[in-house]
């Protein structure tokens, strides 16, 4: 289990993490926050790369900074995309296995298992310099898992993965969680997080804004008028139909479509289809500007 007790971290005059208290239990937990929210700082504190300025960070009851006992049970997949480019993926993972304390034979055997698990067995003998972003992500995951750690920390692991790769990666996380591992995944994309887990830690400007079930966040969103943007070649006709709907609060037209606010997004979405299909009104695009983290934080901090 990972415990943070009033943990803060300052970078000179700038605060990276501000008085965070939380516990992270086995299973997948998402660390959600915009860029600069303090996600990487929190991961660096947990991985013992940094010390908290005040407060305490414990991994299974041990302070992680430069503590080999902690590193035996912790696997870390950093956000950075840097490697020993002249090495092959296999050599790199095997090297990490040797650093974890395995002899050459055991490290080679574990490397093979990990490469199969992350889907890189057939490409692992090429030099890392020639790897795509997705292949690099997989190799990073393999090196993090080589010593079968009980705790796995993944910093923005889905960056650069194609849809198939993301699906495989998320399935792998679920599999690992079923094995009883504690997995902490950082991300700034709500949609990504929803596919991985419903347990979240929400960071904003270094502070922990919310913890618990993702439903809490959803409910917070739904308390506010929900913005929807409709791209269409017939904005005037659509506006006539939409403004008549009782759950629509406002409609704003522009050249490419219209933007509206509704208190009942689900009812609104249900009402769209009959109009589009029955009356033949075109929709060329559809988006919800509210369905991103920035809007959520906007609501949460009442800005």
């Amino acid at each position: 289990m990972i415990t943070l007790e009033n943990a803060s971290r300052w970078y000179g005059q700038v605060i990276g993490l501000n008085d965070v208290t939380c516990k992270i239990e086995p299973g997948v937990t998402a660390l959600l926050g915009m860029n600069g929210a303090g996600k990487s700082t929190m991961l660096r504190l947990i991985t013992g790369q940094m010390k908290p300025t005040t407060g305490e960070v414990l991994v299974d009851g041990l302070a992680p900074f430069a503590n080999p006992e902690v590193y035996k049970k912790l696997g870390y997949c950093p956000e950075i995309d840097n490697f020993y480019e002249h090495r092959t993926g296999r050599q790199f993972v095997q090297m990490m296995g040797r650093f974890a304390g395995y002899d050459a034979k055991e490290a080679a055997s574990r490397t093979e298992q990990m490469l199969v698990l992350v889907g890189m067995a057939d490409r692992a003998d090429k030099k890392i310099a020639g790897y795509s972003k997705g292949m690099r992500q997989r190799i990073k995951l393999a090196q993090a898992m080589i010593h079968d750690p009980a705790i796995i920390l993944l910093d923005e692991p889905l960056n650069g993965l194609d849809p198939m790769g993301r699906r495989d990666y998320i399935n792998l996380l679920h599999y690992l969680a079923q094995q009883g591992k504690t997995i902490l995944v950082s991300s700034h994309i709500l949609f990504e997080v929803e596919q991985m887990t419903s347990s979240i830690l929400l960071l904003h400007r270094g502070r922990l804004l919310a913890t618990g079930h993702l439903r809490v966040i959803r409910e917070l969103i739904d308390k506010h008028p929900h913005k929807v943007r409709l791209e269409t070649t017939e904005p005037r006709k659509w506006a006539e139909r939409i403004i008549a709907m009782p759950f629509v609060l406002s409609v704003k037209m522009d050249r490419g479509g219209l933007e509206l606010q509704t208190r009942e997004p689900n009812s609104f979405y249900d009402a769209l289809e009959p109009i589009a299909v029955g009356e033949g009104l075109p929709i060329t695009g559809f988006s919800s500007p509210d369905n991103n983290l920035e809007s959520i934080f906007h609501y949460l901090v009442n800005e």
Binding site: T47, G48, Q49, A66, P68, E69, Y71, K72, L74, Y76, P78, I80, N82, F83, Y84, M96, F99, A100, G101, Q143
Partner: peptide, 15 residues
Amino acid sequence: EQKTIVYLLTRPIPR
């Protein structure tokens, strides 16, 4: 400089 330090310092080797 190459940022590979992160891999080395998160391994169970006394510094």
